[in-house]
Each structure stands twice: as C-alpha cells, then as structure tokens.
C-alpha cells in the first residue's frame, strides 16, 4: 500500500474528530461569539478533513471517497491522535485541547507546505492560514483564562494538567513518518516538538499557567489504539450513514 495513505489518514482523522467535537458546541457556547467561534473552527477542521481524506482515498485507489472513509471505518482503523478524541468537557477543557492542537498544527502545516507532493503542499498551505488564525483565538483564551480570576486560573490549570499527557501522541514518530521526511513529501512529527515547546512556553509565561514537572505520556492513536471516548463519538457521527447507507440529503 502507498505509504502516503496511512500518513494522510492521520492528518484527516485529527481534523475530522476535532471538527466533529467542536460542532457539538453549536448552541452551547458560553457566549454567542464563542459559540460562533468554536463552530467556525470546527467548520475549518471539517474542511481540512475532507481535503485530506479525499486525497487519501484517491491515493489508496480502492474507490473510497471522503464519506466512505469518515463513516465506514471502525475505531481501530482511525489514526487520529488521542488528544483530538478527549471529550469537550467545559469551555476551558475545549480551549486547552484546541491550543495544544493548534500549536502543533501551525508547525505541521508550515512544514507540509514544503512537501514535494504538490497536492499535499497545496492543502497544507491553505490549512496553514487557518491554523494560524485558530491559534490566535485559542492562545488569547489561554492567557485570558490563565491570567483571569482565581477560579478561571484553577479550572484551566486543571484542564492543562489533564490534557498534557495526550500531547506526546501528536509527535508520534515511526518508520512511516521518518520515511515520509526522508522522501520529502511528509514531515516527521518528532521534528515539530521543539517549535511546539517554544510556543507552549511563551504561552505559559504570559498566562501564569504552569507545566507539571513530570507528565506521563499516553500514546497509541496513530496505530489505532484509542480511548473509549472515540467509540461513543463514532457511534453518533456514523449512525445515520450506516443505518441508511445510500441516503442523500
């Protein structure tokens, strides 16, 4: 199988799962503006997912389109990082999850913009503009909540402590990602970690939030080992097309 298929699934599934979760905020945002912001970001993620999965399906060459890949794969076939499937929780949890992801995505998209594969580079250049904008939003909230009231600080610090163990999965490196980097069409996520840490530490300085001294790492998303949360999410996301496979609307 073309090595690009699995690599593109990782990119597409991150965006798809995150987009699906952000969509759940529709009508539940803490303020109208944030309701609109979170769902707009979700929309961008779904748009990116469509592009990556369409390309993945074409490269696979088995006739699977974006919908087939999104709705008719089971949990173990999903390649999203574990961070993306962490539940929405409260607004602070969602913001922290988004910030941790955005800081990764800006480096990833920037790197992939230089891909030797023109289609990957095109989608990445487009996505890079969006992820930079998302980061502006999530970062501003990290500072606002971290440097806000005692309660907002305590809550968002707790969110950070809860979610940091899932960050390592974003930088999962294996033979496939290393080959992608050597061949020039992909980026090895391990190489993105330094840039991520610089952006992360800058946020800590500004928000007054802290990073625990030792953070355990949960990995497995990139090889299909997921948490229970993903099965509930997929059940909801996939039920309609699986019940009525040829439904059109």
């Amino acid at each position: 199988m073309d090595a690009r298929f699995d690599y593109l699934l990782r990119l597409g599934d991150d965006a798809l799962i995150l987009g699906q979760q952000l969509g759940l905020w529709t009508g539940h945002g803490p303020a109208l503006e944030e309701d609109i912001a979170l769902t707009n970001i979700g929309l961008d993620q779904i748009g990116q997912a469509r592009a990556w999965l369409t390309l993945a399906g074409r490269i696979e060459g088995q006739g699977r389109d974006e919908d087939r890949l999104a709705y008719f794969r089971d949990q173990a076939e999903f390649r999203n990082a574990l961070l993306c499937e962490r539940p929405n929780g409260h607004f602070g949890d969602t913001i922290v999850r988004q910030f941790l992801f955005d800081t990764y995505a800006v480096g990833l998209h920037e790197g992939l913009s230089r891909s030797s594969d023109p289609e990957i580079a095109a989608i990445a250049r487009k996505s890079a503009k969006e992820s930079a904008y998302h980061l502006r939003h999530s970062r501003a909230w990290m500072v606002r909540l971290g440097d806000g009231t005692e309660e907002s600080h305590a809550k968002v610090q707790q969110s950070l402590d809860d979610l940091l163990p899932y960050v390592g999965d974003l930088f999962h490196s294996d033979e496939a990602t290393q080959n992608a980097a050597v061949e020039g069409w992909g980026v090895d996520p391990a190489e993105l970690r330094e840039g991520w840490e610089a952006r992360f530490n800058e946020m800590l300085d500004e928000s007054g939030l802290t990073c625990p001294e030792s953070v355990p790492e949960q990995t497995g998303g990139r090889v299909g080992r997921h948490t229970e949360q993903l099965s509930f999410l997929l059940a909801e996301m996939q039920v309609l097309p699986r019940t009525y496979p040829d439904a059109q609307w």
């Binding site: 503006e33 944030e34 609109i36 912001a37 961008d44 502006r136």
Partner: peptide
C-alpha cells in the same frame, strides 16, 4: 470576536 457571521469575517 475573531469569528463572525461567515468563515471569512470577524466581528
């Protein structure tokens, strides 16, 4: 807000 009535607008 950085996000407005459509994806291409801020408020």
């Amino acid at each position: 807000s950085l996000f407005g009535s459509t994806a291409c607008k801020a408020h």
